[in-house]
Design a binder for these strands. Structure first.
Length: 269
DNA sequence: ATGGTAGCGATGCTA
């Protein structure tokens, strides 16, 4: 089974690229982040026609996560248990709906979670605290899943908005006092790895200089100034099946590219 | 040169 994840930065503006990507790489399951649309706006028919079932959650033009699968799509959940709500929008505005940042479904025997971790914005922003709480809640919940079933086939995939190692950015000095590389964020990521979820892509795509994201501005892509922030983490039973993996850097090229490249792993039967 | 790009949706917000 071939499993991929991709922050598409709007599914409506990139549906053609997504369809071409699915076919080019013969992908079975694709997790998407930043679809930037409501459920009723998702171009579902296009993927229907290619043989994929679609699950999506999106409440507005922000966030939005989806899973496309041609090997079954069952037991869809929006939100993971304990997922925090964003409550930094101001006192008095009580909107308790969680943001559209997590979607789970069972595809071909694998419990797949498409995750869009909060960005954090700056180290002093309430959004940064929210990011750390969000990751801590995910760690607690995912740890419970493995405690209940150590053999579970679970994939935690998506845009983590964290560069776990210094090699995961082009120049650490450019990230002094910024998010994505701070010690608390890296500790939150490591806690999920320590809970039993391994990066199944890095062994097949070692750094340095291997990235999944390049800012649109300042010629980051041609200058090869990127960040590795998109990951496929697998439970022990899932990680044992990883036979190859790649980051599709070609997809970042040309007009109409997302600022993120897709990440793919091949899982042995 | 204190900038620049992209997307949504309506002017500023998010990344």
């Amino acid at each position: 089974m071939r499993l991929a994840t991709w922050n598409v930065n709007s599914i409506r503006s990139r549906a053609d690229r997504v369809a071409a990507f699915l076919q080019r790489h013969d992908v079975d399951v694709l997790a998407l982040q930043e679809t930037k649309c409501r459920d009723d706006q998702f171009p579902e028919m296009m993927f229907d026609a290619l043989g994929y079932e679609v699950a999506h959650v999106g409440h507005s033009q922000w966030n939005g996560v989806a899973i496309l699968s041609r090997v079954g799509l069952e037991d869809v959940e929006i939100d993971f248990p304990g997922q925090p709500c964003w409550s930094g929008g101001g006192a008095g505005v009580a909107d308790q709906q969680t943001e559209a940042r997590a979607l789970g479904a069972t595809c071909g025997g694998v419990r797949v979670w498409s995750l869009y971790v909060p960005n954090g914005r700056t180290l002093t922003d309430p959004h940064y605290t929210y990011k750390l709480e969000w990751l801590a809640a995910l760690r607690a919940t995912a740890g419970d899943w493995l405690a209940k079933d150590p053999e579970a086939q679970v994939a935690l995939v998506g845009d983590w908005n964290i560069a776990p190692q210094d090699d995961d950015v082009w120049d650490m000095s450019a990230f002094a006092h910024s998010t994505h590389v701070s010690a608390p964020e890296r500790a939150a990521f490591r806690a999920i790895v320590d809970a039993g979820f391994a990066d199944v892509v890095r062994p097949f795509a070692p750094g340095p200089g291997v990235y999944t994201y390049w800012d649109y501005v300042r010629l980051r892509f041609p200058r090869r100034e990127g960040m590795r922030i998109d990951f496929i983490l697998g439970s022990p039973a899932l990680a044992a099946r990883a036979s190859r993996a790649l980051i599709d850097r070609e997809e970042r090229k040309g007009k109409g590219a997302s600022d993120h490249a897709p990440v793919i792993v091949e899982l042995a039967d």
